[in-house]
Design a protein around this nucleic acid. Structure first.
Length: 331
DNA sequence: AAGACCGCCAACCGCGCCGAA
DNA sequence: ATTCGGCGCGGTTGGCGGTCT
């Protein structure tokens, strides 16, 4: 049982866009008298509007301390960080951004930041990696952007490009994670969903996520890149990385350099083979099968075998990977 | 040139909270 | 303790302007 609206269609009160005359009346009245009771205000100010409409117009548009124009990078960062903590509490977020209204922040989130997170493979609601497989199609696009690094120079674009490249690396980690999840869910290794077992979830306890990116150099776009060379980048990556902690998936024991190890598919294969042979002695899957190289064949939809998954990974490493291939793989 | 499509954002709507009676 | 009114919040809508075909 909801409340009756403060101004229904029968009230004869005006709705829709405000005219400059109405704005002026409202501003003049509030400047002279303050808003007082919003319900009483329209009559006192000579406006044919409901109080709620007046309040919204004032708080979202006419207030003198409103800051208009593009959001700065710092503001973006604040919004994302706060959203990760408080969720869709726009008014709470707005209290940390002087001059910005909850409505403006909400709109900015829905039109820009939400998409940004989605492109990074993060769920905008949880700020954790998306677990649905469809988004991997977007990731493959992200990965291709990493090649922009080839054109890197010493321009102000560097930071943005390199951060984007690092996001692409993160995407690769996620893909690895998702591929592994497919393995876990496949019939090949039905009993290895035990994170204390040996092998891929082994005892080395080095978590791919939640690590420290400071000092972790890697190859980006054919050049060695160290996040430390970019002010704020290690923190940025650590923030993203930390947000991935607790993800129900790969707790990798890939134990070399945190970032470059993500490319080390061979060790991943070897450890996986070890795991499969240890966990599924009766399995027909052999190391040889796992080690078999891609023939370029596209696996049938619905199939999910270690071989096809590794092929998928190798395909990912191939810049020419087509979107249709991914669709087939991920179905 | 014009219609279709899309993104942005101001404004509206419904609900929940809170304080006063 | 309960009811009621006012306000604020978050979700949604619809119009406008820009871009695409």
């Amino acid at each position: 049982m909801g409340r009756s609206p403060c101004c229904d269609d029968q009230s004869g009160l005006k709705k829709g866009p405000w005219t400059t005359e109405e704005d002026q009346k409202l501003v003049d009245y509030i400047n002279t008298n303050g808003h007082g009771s919003w319900r009483a205000l329209p009559k006192l100010a000579g406006l044919n509007r409901c109080g709620k409409s007046c309040r919204l117009r004032w708080t979202n548009y006419l207030r003198p301390d409103i800051k208009r124009g593009k959001f700065s990078e710092e503001e973006e960062r604040v919004i994302i960080n706060l959203h990760a903590v408080v969720g869709n509490k726009w008014s709470k977020i707005a209290t940390h951004l002087p001059g910005r209204t909850d409505n403006e922040i909400k709109n900015f989130w829905n039109t820009h930041l939400r998409k940004k997170l989605l492109q990074m493979g993060l769920d905008p609601n949880t700020h954790k990696p998306r677990t649905d497989l469809n988004h991997l199609l977007n990731l493959s696009q992200l990965l291709s952007t990493a090649n922009v690094g080839n054109m890197m120079t010493s321009t102000p674009w560097d930071n943005a490009l390199r951060l984007q490249a690092s996001a692409a690396q993160l995407a690769k980690m996620q893909l690895l994670q998702n591929l592994y999840m497919q393995v876990i869910n496949s019939s090949v290794a039905p009993d290895i969903d035990n994170k204390t077992s040996t092998g891929l979830f082994g005892s080395q306890n080095i978590n791919l996520f939640g690590g420290n990116f400071s000092g972790a150099s890697t190859m980006v776009g054919g050049q060695e890149w160290n996040p430390d060379s970019i002010p704020g980048a290690p923190n940025e990556l650590n923030t993203i990385s930390n947000s991935l902690e607790g993800f129900e998936g790969l707790n990798s024991n890939i134990n070399t350099n945190l970032m470059s190890s993500c490319y080390d598919i061979q060790s991943f294969k070897n450890q996986f083979a070890e795991l499969v042979s240890a966990s599924s002695p009766g399995s027909s899957t052999t190391n040889n099968q796992i080690e078999s190289t891609s023939t370029g064949d596209i696996p049938a939809a619905g199939q999910s075998s270690p071989t096809s998954i590794f092929e998928a990974w190798e395909k990912l490493m191939d810049d020419d990977t087509s979107e249709s291939y991914w669709k087939d793989i991920l179905q």
